[in-house]
Design a protein around this nucleic acid. Structure first.
Lengths: 135, 135
DNA sequence: GATCGGTTTGACAACGGTTCTCAACTACCG
DNA sequence: CGGTAGTTGAGAACCGTTGTCAAACCGATC
């Protein structure tokens, strides 16, 4: 068991299912719900259980390889992302997404939070609007 | 049914139930889930159906008299609010809330958006953390 | 290959928040 | 009062999500 170095690493296996989810994620660049991703996989001929899709997405989000956020209905939606912390500019008509970074915002949220004595800070910041193409 | 014509106003009645919800909202200043508000009303002796609480909260949010946002689980949480645009610093354990304003953030989001040609901008920004009391 | 132990999977049940349904009720107007 | 349209509540329905657990699978080892 010590074969894989100074582990405690759960040894994630590249199973057919996980590859299918990864492939599906690579196939679009806007945010999709878990069920949409599940449908997409089925439509590509693969068959992966819904629970597995959820588990895999959660694991990927944990690992920082996908972004998860919630739409206005509170549903979780996902997309693959670059590995730096960033926010999104989302078109409320067509769903087109732009990743944006804002060091200033990060600094501001941390400052505000510690000013009020809050710890273990996280934050959500999404910008919605109408993109040039949809106007 | 065309009696109230040019108003299209649904004629909101100040029923016992709606007053109870309003009273409950006045009784706390952090974010609470609909069910917590429902419990709170019951505990005050009033009896209002859960569905009615949901309906009333939705109506109040529509009218801009309460803020509704979603916690990290996607659950809707509510509180009465001041009428200026602001954001929230929310304790993820006890729900304590601080309203914060950030002119810098407003400016930043508008700049980013127009830089990408987006119009009709709106944004959401919430900060979650653990408040001093809950640590 | 055959074997073995832990990982992963999938069908399905369970769950929890939210919305829907619809008959009973109530506020308001005349 | 009586009529009428808005409102309510109990419970079912809904739907996204998570838990369950036996079977399948992977990879390392005999």
């Amino acid at each position: 068991m010590t074969s894989t170095e100074h582990g405690a690493r759960p040894a994630v296996r590249p199973t057919r299912q996980r590859l299918a989810v990864a492939a599906a994620l690579a196939g679009f660049d806007d945010f999709r719900s878990a069920q949409e991703i599940h449908d997409l996989i089925s439509r590509q001929g693969d068959s992966v259980g819904l629970a597995t899709v959820y588990r895999t997405l959660a694991a990927l989000a944990d690992a920082g390889e996908v972004d998860m956020l919630r739409n206005e209905d509170g549903e979780a939606i996902w997309r693959s992302c670059s590995d730096t912390h960033h926010h999104h500019l989302v078109c409320r008509t067509c769903g087109a997404t732009v990743e944006v970074e804002g060091p200033a915002v990060e600094r501001w949220t941390n400052a505000i939070a510690s000013e009020h004595g809050f710890a273990e800070i996280s934050h959500t910041l999404e910008i919605f609007g109408t993109c040039p193409a949809c106007r």
